[in-house]
Amino acid sequence: MFYQTHLRSIALILALGFLAIYASFGSYFAREIVVEITILAILAISLDFCAGFGGMVSLCHGAIMGIAAYVFTIMGVKLGWPSLPSATLGLLAAVLFSGMVGWVTARTSGIFFIMATLAFGQMAYTFFFKSRWLGGDDGMGGISRFDLSWLGLDLNDALVFALLGVGVLFLVYVVASILLRSGFGRVLCGIHSNENRMQAMGVNTAKHKALAMACSGFMAGMAGIIAAQHTLYISPELLIWTVSGEVLLVVILGGIGTLVGPVIGAIILIMMKHELSNYTDYWHMIVGVVLILAVLAGGRGVYGQIEVWLEAFFKPQAPKEPKEPTESKEKEQDLA
């Protein structure tokens, strides 16, 4: 069950503050990295929302993001719509696709859910890959960034764009945390814990899960809109299943079921990638090793582990119950 603890608020402020400072005082290159991080972090929050809290480990989040980016681009570039309605339609497409996937797969679980989402994601990927009208594997260009001059902002300025990205990341976090603390989110955690009992208490769990996927799709769609605006070019590469796998990696690396962990995971992964690619062409291997180690170390992730330690440190007094051996385990589940 989700609680916006002080620790999480502090971690979020530190992470966002770091990104803002890094973008403000860094080079053009640093600003590009910050945008990359925000896109991945938004996507990871979106995946943590359904996987960490709803138990729906999706391998189609890359595709959801890609669909938003494609629909946004089709509307803007092919049909000449203004950017705001195009973006809204892109988000709507992501929400519909994601909600549809959630609805259809509501009765599957475990590896079958993973496979089903993989299939739906690859279906979308193949569709765009094969579509000549949409540029096939070459993708599409010609995207322009939002015109926010009425706010006095020029999004073509790398710094403004990066800071706006950080702002959107914050917004998505807030949306996710409000949803998770609402009655809906609480019940979502209940479904994750014991779906059968939740049904017996009168909750239509299939509808609930589909709605949760739709909410998650909205967040992933945000990442897609920013991604399209960032590179001003999109290709089917956005939708390929390994992108979704990488997002899952970020969630695990940061700490699944903590919501702020994925943000930290995204910072670590992107920074690591960029640092490593300076030294070696084989950074994928190192990422793979880190992933394996993260799972073998207990799968709590960097932030998740720190949270467990700090909680144990600040509450050292043993509770009245003589349950010492299971105490640490309870804590970790409490936080999840």
């Binding site: 409000i178 603390r181 609402s182 009655g183 609480r186 019940v187 909750v203």
Partner: peptide, 10 residues
Amino acid sequence: KSNWFIRDAS
């Protein structure tokens, strides 16, 4: 209250 999307049921 499972249909409350903003308010915290708890």
